[in-house]
């Protein structure tokens, strides 16, 4: 009988502990993937973006905090990409179209940060954002000034880059919204410019 009571108690404790651990590990049964988790985390706890220097397409070194635009949209790329990034490129172009007037007033910029700084020098970045002639106003690209900074940038935005097995990279894509205080406040589906712009506008 003692064993019965003890077992019942122990099982209930194990059940409660199991549920608690699962609750904690899935943010209350809401986030079962890293992607959901990082988006929820950005919304719940806006975190400052790294104050590390980036080399922009114009060759200048700046931190994101140095940019004059109030709001930033940030995504991660590598310019040699030939597959998914093409879709990303046209989505970015669409985003700039939607934001043309605000971008012209200097209120918003779309910054593509390369995680492949060894290859993506300013020339490559210029070519990347100016595929159809000149880059529109507010369309920026940059790469971390130091290769060892890449990890910190990726970490801050929750980006994981892996080998795609075909000589390139695969990574979880999303567009980050960075507020005037240079905090990451939201992550939106990369392939959905309308949603990204809408998410930005509600914050204005």
């Amino acid at each position: 009988m003692v064993g019965m009571a003890r077992t019942l108690g122990a099982s209930l404790v194990a059940l409660a502990a199991g549920l608690a651990v699962t609750w904690a590990a899935t943010d209350g049964f809401t986030a079962f993937t890293l992607e959901t988790a990082r988006r929820a985390a950005a919304l719940a706890h806006p975190a400052p973006v790294p104050a590390l220097p980036l080399r922009f397409a114009d060759g200048q070194l700046r931190r994101l905090a140095d940019l004059p635009e109030q709001w930033l949209l940030v995504d991660f790329v590598y310019t040699r990409c030939t597959s998914l990034c093409l879709a990303q490129g046209s989505a970015d172009a669409r985003t700039m179209e939607l934001l043309a007037s605000e971008a012209a007033q200097g209120r918003v910029a779309l910054v593509s940060i390369s995680f492949d700084p060894d290859h993506d020098d300013p020339a490559a970045l210029r070519a990347f954002i100016a595929r159809d002639g000149a880059a529109p106003p507010g369309r920026l690209a940059a790469a971390p000034a130091a290769t060892q900074d890449v990890a910190r940038w990726l970490d801050a935005f929750g980006v994981v880059v892996i080998d795609d097995g075909a000589g390139g990279y695969a990574h979880n894509e999303a567009i980050g919204i960075v507020d005037p205080d240079r905090r990451l406040v939201a992550l939106i589906d990369a392939g959905d410019p309308e949603a990204a712009v809408a998410a930005l506008r509600v914050r204005w």
């Binding site: 003890r6 077992t7 108690g9 651990v21």
Partner: peptide, 27 residues
Amino acid sequence: SFNRAGATGIVIASFTMILWMLPRSLD
């Protein structure tokens, strides 16, 4: 004496198994 019929152990094992199959845990 805390594990009559293996109940407690199986509860622990079930949670462990499921937790480590979640994509977030694998990542």
